[in-house]
Design a protein around this nucleic acid. Structure first.
Length: 804
RNA sequence: GCAGAUGUGGCGGAACUGGUAGACGCGCUGGACUCAAAAUCCAGUGGUAGCGAUAUCGUGUGGGUUCGAUUCCCACCAUCUGCACCA
């Protein structure tokens, strides 16, 4: 079998005949939309993990097509990103060229793997024809107030000269490059994610996604319900705190404010230890996120001398601190502290020598706090809480809230961890933000006719003095509006996840220059029926896409709330040593192209699907690849060379064949490719024992194997006497009656231990089965001389005889 | 710490709603073909004891429910992934 020739032949055939072109306007057949997470076209090309997810979608896509669906299975490139920019800075070349070359290389590799993508609908997020619509959608968000400028503390990376989002910061260092990141207040273009929080949570209940990913999104949104309470400051002024544990309100012995918040500044005139406070604030500002979390668990902080707060529930005066564990941009930027019932407050109180009051009975609070996790739902009762003493925690929660609400000092509220999505980067290689800062101080969004706002070609792609690279485009920056007014363009670009937040919509109508996609098409093709990609996008891309889609749903542009009906994450492919392939062990890394050259794409695809469950991470094995190749050789010999394929019948193969068709069909649907392949192997093994293989069965086998190993099966299909592609042939059918066994073999147990197996005709009575079981020599041996207490006969399952 | 997932032969992994644990593949052992090797084909292959029929142990650990548990329940251990002073 000449793998290379066969694969090239069919790849050429598919390309020339446009075999996999989707007739997008054909609504006569049911639709099926299968989607891969599109890759970032790095210079390195594909790695061993790419073909895994891509093959899985390819299998489903090819099967659905053969089952009569109109299938949309597109591919594209998430082509804005840092490596291209770094290349541009180093070489002075336009990153567009670098990106174009990489895309060509990727395309070549993807084609070598034989995927059934419709290559006429390829998109690239860095293509102005594409990002025109990214800008257009952004514009809608901006006009509707979902995107806006907000003054907020951000992660600033001096070395990269840009603002980073939380998920781009790892351990206080930038994800790319590992440079230190500090917090700094800046005016930022943001997308108001919290506005979507509630519906994003609700939406999770209606989609078929891995539980872990849904849970991660829930945690990311971080909804908590509680009470927001106003706290007066002695001598005037007030602030609010948010708590989920209002039942501990009598245990408050201090409050803590965010050191970088506005409130401290307002109180400053009244603070008597200004120097100490200012010094602490300065210290905190210097600290990176890492210092504020890991290194500084020492509960640092500083008492605000001269100001006291009043606990509204009992009028008690307590101290106010500032502490860096309180974040200005979460909740109200201030917290109530109850050291007896919160471990963090407990430790803080110990360090700063603050009084503790136990208000919930049931544990010793001298060594550690008695926290809600331990006291909730246990019937614990309140102490030291005036009229609420004696109530259970649950009763008190309600009663205290009620009282404070009536007093007019508290409100029931919901709080989210979910913050604004900072939507601007001081980078070159991203979508330009279509906003102009006019001379009169207003911000102006470009008209639709002015889109796309294209990136200018620069001489130098590095921003000067930490400024955005687009600041270098002195001419491009200048803007004159139709009315003659002048302004300067926004020089930040959109973050990497902008383009990928809606690409699944564009695939449906990629060349439309009137709108981002035709509404009728969107209505017909959305949602994506199956989406496969790595778990690393569990919160980032998958959250942003849901937000954009949700927004577009509200605006009436798309008709489904949730874009991805079913989501599956493929597992990681590990090196042969069982460790992640990558920089640390390059000797264990596998290049898919090497495998294709040595064994063929069909083998690579088959092997990766046979390794184990799609979702699991699995170690690579060279001998496993060889095993996969051996199987393809065996099928080839059977179908093409053995001479056993005839237009005759063979009853011996009837049951194995129908069983195979059933199992493969169901397993493909369930993405259980490893067991589907195993079933085909079983059938091939059965065929090898026979001298007559009915042609119908051989053709059925070839069709079932086609989605996994498309080239060799196209070749075999042709050899079997067909003159056009197998891609649109009808998927094999099975006869349920022919899949069931007529004689059954079951185990016989005595006292739950296996003693024999018996074989009988299906449909035999329980009595006959039992009789047969008791006739077995070995069963007799264990039963004789003992009293039979119970006989359990479950036809087609088991016989168990209980003796004493 | 919190959340989610996982744990089965020498290895990758099967096992439907509790019913013959180890399908299928890799590897290994023996045999056929060959001058020989590769390829291919045939047979065997969880541990222990036995020539053997068979017995016994065995799905991370310890309990429980059941005629019967890889599967259900409780506790624990280990690994992976994510989040983490979130009020």
């Amino acid at each position: 079998m000449e793998t290379k020739k066969i694969e090239e032949k069919w790849q050429k055939y598919w390309e020339e005949n446009k075999t996999f072109k989707t007739d997008i306007w054909d609504f006569s057949k049911p639709k099926y939309y299968v989607l891969d997470m599109f890759p970032y076209p790095s210079g390195v090309g594909l790695h061993a993990g790419h073909p895994e997810g891509y093959t899985a979608t390819d299998i489903v896509s090819r099967m659905k097509r053969m089952q009569g669906y109109n299938v949309l299975h597109p591919m594209g490139y998430d082509s804005f990103g840092l490596p291209a920019e770094q290349y541009a800075i180093e070489t002075g070349n336009n990153p567009a060229i670098f990106t174009k070359n990489n895309i060509e290389y990727f395309t070549k590799q993807l084609k070598a793997l034989g995927f059934d993508y419709d290559w006429d609908r390829v998109i690239a997020t860095s293509d102005p024809k594409y990002y025109k619509w990214t800008q257009w959608i952004f514009k809608q968000l901006y006009n509707d107030g979902f995107a806006k400028y907000v003054d907020m503390p951000v992660n600033w990376c001096e070395e990269l000269g840009t603002v980073l989002s939380n998920d781009e910061v790892i351990d206080g260092k930038s994800e790319r490059g590992g440079y230190p990141v500090i917090r700094k207040n800046m005016k930022q273009l943001c997308i108001d994610q919290p506005k979507f929080a509630e519906r994003l949570l609700e939406g999770l209940n209606e989609i078929d996604w891995p539980e872990s990913t849904k849970e991660m999104q829930r945690n990311w949104i971080g909804k908590s319900t509680g009470v927001e309470m106003d706290v007066d400051i002695v001598g005037g002024g007030k602030f609010s705190i948010f708590t989920t544990c209002i039942e501990t309100v009598y245990g408050i012995t201090f409050f803590v404010l965010a050191p970088d918040g506005d409130l401290v500044q307002q109180l400053m005139p009244r603070i008597t230890n200004k120097d100490e406070v200012n010094q602490y604030i300065a210290e905190v500002a210097k600290k990176s996120e890492m210092d504020r979390t890991d290194l500084n668990k020492g509960k640092s902080g500083c008492r605000l001398e001269g100001v006291k707060a009043i606990n509204p529930v009992n009028g008690k005066e307590v101290d106010i601190f500032i502490g860096d564990f309180v974040l200005a941009n979460y909740g109200t930027g201030a917290v109530m502290a109850v050291p007896s019932h919160d471990q963090r407050d407990f430790e803080y109180a110990q360090v700063h020598n603050i009084e503790m009051i136990q208000v919930i009975d049931g544990a010793d609070v001298s060594k550690q706090a008695f926290e809600k996790y331990d006291y909730l739902g246990k019937g614990c009762k309140l102490i030291n809480s005036e009229e609420f003493t004696g109530l259970t925690v649950e009763e008190a929660k309600e009663a205290i809230t009620e009282k404070l609400v009536k007093m007019g000092v508290a409100r029931r509220t919901v709080n989210y961890k979910f913050r604004e999505w900072i939507f601007a980067r001081q980078r070159y290689w991203g979508e330009p933000v279509p906003i102009v800062h006019m001379e009169d101080g207003t911000d102006y969004v470009l008209d639709d006719e002015e889109l796309p706002l294209e990136l200018p070609i620069l001489d130098n792609y590095k921003g000067q003095d930490g400024k955005a690279p687009l600041e270098n485009a002195t001419e491009w920056k200048q803007y004159t509006r139709k009315d003659g007014k002048k302004g300067l363009r926004e020089t930040s670009t959109m973050p990497g996840s902008a383009g990928s937040s809606w690409y699944f919509l564009r695939y449906i109508d990629p060349n439309n220059d009137k709108e981002f996609a035709d509404k009728k098409l969107l209505e017909h093709w959305m949602p994506v029926d199956l989406y496969i990609g790595g778990p690393e996008h569990a919160v980032g891309h998958l959250m942003y896409s849901r937000i954009w889609n949700n927004y577009l749903y509200d605006k009436g542009y798309v008709t489904v709330k949730e874009p991805f009906k079913k989501l599956v994450h493929q597992g990681m492919i590990l090196g042969e040593n069982g460790i992640k392939m990558g920089k640390r062990y390059p000797e264990y890394a596998v290049n898919p192209l090497d495998v294709i050259n040595e064994y063929g794409a069909d083998t690579l695809r088959l092997y990766e699907m046979f390794m184990g469950p799609l979702e699991a991470s699995k170690p690579w094995s060279k001998s496993g690849v060889e095993g996969a190749r051996k199987f393809l050789d065996r099928v080839w010999r059977l179908v093409v060379e053995s001479g056993t394929v005839k237009e005759e019948e063979n009853k011996n193969l009837e049951k194995p064949y129908h069983k195979m068709v059933k199992k493969v069909t169901n397993d493909f649907e369930a993405l259980a490719f490893n067991t589907a392949i195993s079933e085909m192997m079983i059938f091939v093994n059965a065929c090898n024992k026979e001298t007559i293989i009915p042609k119908e069965y051989a053709e059925g086998l070839v069709k079932l194997l086609n989605p996994i190993s498309p080239h060799i099966t196209e070749e075999m299909w042709e050899i079997l006497g067909h003159n056009k592609t197998i891609a649109y042939e009808e998927w094999p059918k099975y006869d349920e009656a022919k899949t069931v066994d007529t004689d059954v073999t079951i185990g016989v147990q005595v006292n739950g231990k296996m003693r024999a197996t018996i074989c009988y005709d299906k449909g035999a009575s329980k009595e006959d089965i039992l009789k047969l079981a008791l006739e077995d020599e070995n069963v007799k041996k264990h039963v004789d001389g003992k009293e039979i207490i119970k006989e359990i006969v479950i036809p087609e399952k088991i016989v168990n005889i209980v003796v004493k």
